[in-house]
């Protein structure tokens, strides 16, 4: 069923509701976590979804690889509808997901066997699995740790192993569902760098779900979620230009942008569309030159 050619991922009027129940199992409250989201992602794009806690961004992400199915609306991944049972395996093979907690997503107690878990499930022949595991681990720089137990690795290293596991499934897309939120700043940086490189070199579509502004400055497109709806979308520069709207979404500007704005308010003639520290540095050098 190939429909909607072109877009890699496409949602149409996506709604997700879940109900809260009391002890007797009666529905006490229906919560609309995702409320009419339309978006599309082209192959090879780097997309970021931003939002405060409870904005529905994680629920939205779980629709992209059919972990959840829509209450209303449709999601197409590579032209396949996620609510059709026969598409589920193909969709999950195409769109791998890195989860928030690095400990709770690794299955095996040996790194290389964990990376092999996906291809093993897909029934890939033994020789091919070994090749893919090697390539996957090498491309995230974890090949030296292949015989180790994940329990000996740092959080950032575990997330890199998880990424290797997705690469070994030959997914065209990696969804990072707040994958950096439990990492230290070093681990966070290394994961973002890996992901950027995979996007540039292997044209892998990246969907980054996060509440850290600094991670999204390199994205092609940013969606800001608020109460289950997409409140803002555009390039990072377009989005961060709308400081007031962002504040309404309880999303803060990247550090460099904040500094630039403060400087501007204190009467310094700096540009206000600055996103990265490097840009800020160059701007300040220009002013003081």
């Amino acid at each position: 069923m190939k429909e909607k050619k072109g877009a890699f991922l496409r949602t149409e009027g996506l709604v997700h509701e879940y109900s809260r129940r009391d002890e007797e199992g009666n529905v006490t409250e229906i919560i609309r976590a995702v409320d009419g989201v339309d978006l599309s992602v082209e192959p090879g794009e780097f997309i970021a979804v931003l939002g405060a806690n409870g904005s529905g961004k994680s629920t939205l992400a779980k629709h992209f690889n059919a972990l959840l199915t829509p209450t209303d609306g449709v999601v197409y991944l590579d032209g396949k509808r996620t609510d059709q049972e026969e598409n589920v395996l193909a969709i999950r093979q195409l769109a791998g997901m890195v989860f928030q907690n690095p400990d709770n997503q690794l299955v095996s107690n040996v790194v290389e066997e964990d990376v092999a878990f996906g291809p093993e499930n897909l029934g890939v022949p033994t020789k091919e699995i070994r090749k893919r595991v090697k390539e996957g681990l090498e491309s995230v720089g974890m090949y030296a740790y292949r015989k180790k137990s994940p329990n000996h690795l740092s959080g950032g290293q575990k997330q890199r192993v998880a990424i290797a596991g997705i690469l070994a499934m030959q997914s065209g897309c990696i969804i990072l569902d707040e994958a950096t939120s439990m990492l230290d700043p070093m681990g966070r940086k290394s994961i973002i760098e890996q992901v950027l490189r995979l996007n540039k070199e292997k044209k892998i579509t990246i969907i980054l779900i996060t509440h850290h502004m600094d991670e999204v400055v390199h994205a092609d497109k940013v969606f800001v979620m608020k109460k289950g709806k997409v409140a803002l979308s555009g390039t990072p520069r377009q989005v961060f230009g709308q400081a007031e709207l962002l504040e309404e979404c309880k999303v803060t500007l990247p550090e460099a942008a904040q500094i630039a704005e403060e400087l501007y308010e204190h009467g310094m003639p700096v540009r206000t569309d600055i996103l990265t520290m490097q840009e800020l540095e160059e701007e300040l050098e220009r002013i003081f030159a």
Binding site: L67, R92, F99, Q105, V107, F117
Partner: peptide, 10 residues
């Protein structure tokens, strides 16, 4: 969490 991660990996 693990069940979801295993699902996601087919």
């Amino acid at each position: 969490d693990l069940a979801q991660a295993m699902d996601a990996r087919c």
